[in-house]
């Protein structure tokens, strides 16, 4: 079954992923009049996991704790799980590509490294008003200036730290 294998087992070509992800933008407007976006839902997670109920921003913006944004987040996790199950790649792993392969750090340091990077992602997304899905895909597809500008600086930031990490911790290899 070539077609099933192409969908569920083999990695997709870039355009296949691009088409599905791009179609989400008009589809979410058609069904729910809602913009594609993931990072705003992390505010719901703050309300769920951290003592933040009295913070003004959480109170006003996240009146409903378990809103559709939480369901979207759960769905994306399940999508990754489904992909791993169907392609036979499911398994709990402490690998993170060439980073864990080359840097060879103890697990605790790796955890701190990714946690600190995560803080920058969460903080930056809120200050910039969106992330790769909300700004870079949804926003640029709608030709929003703020999204084009934000995306340019997302990329500049990524180039800076990825190259620093590469030369400091990955020995410039790769």
């Amino acid at each position: 079954m070539f077609i099933l294998r192409s969908i569920f087992v083999d990695p997709w070509p870039f355009w296949a992923g691009g088409i599905i992800i791009g179609l989400l933008v008009p589809l979410l407007y058609y069904y729910f009049n809602t913009a594609l976006g993931v990072s705003t839902g992390y505010g719901n997670l703050v309300k769920i996991f951290l003592p933040a109920k009295n913070l003004q921003w959480i109170k006003t913006k996240y009146a409903e704790t378990f809103s559709w944004r939480v369901y979207f987040i759960i769905g994306i996790i399940l999508g990754g799980l489904l992909s791993a199950i169907l392609s036979g790649n499911l398994g709990i792993t402490t690998e993170m590509g060439r980073f864990t392969a080359i840097a060879g750090w103890p697990g605790v340091l790796n955890a701190v490294f990714f946690f600190v990077g995560g803080i920058l992602l969460g903080l930056g997304a809120r200050i910039a008003g969106g992330c790769t899905s909300g700004h870079s895909i949804h926003g640029i597809a709608n030709l929003h200036i703020s999204s084009i500008l934000a995306t340019i600086f997302f990329i500049i930031g990524g180039i800076i730290t990825a190259n620093i990490v590469r030369s400091l911790f990955l020995g410039g290899a790769w």
Binding site: A125, R126, G157
Partner: peptide, 16 residues
């Protein structure tokens, strides 16, 4: 904000 997000993107190799 965009730059801070980008720094995190390049460190973690992931986005939200």
């Amino acid at each position: 904000g965009g730059l801070i997000f980008g720094f995190g993107w390049g460190i973690t190799g992931a986005c939200p």
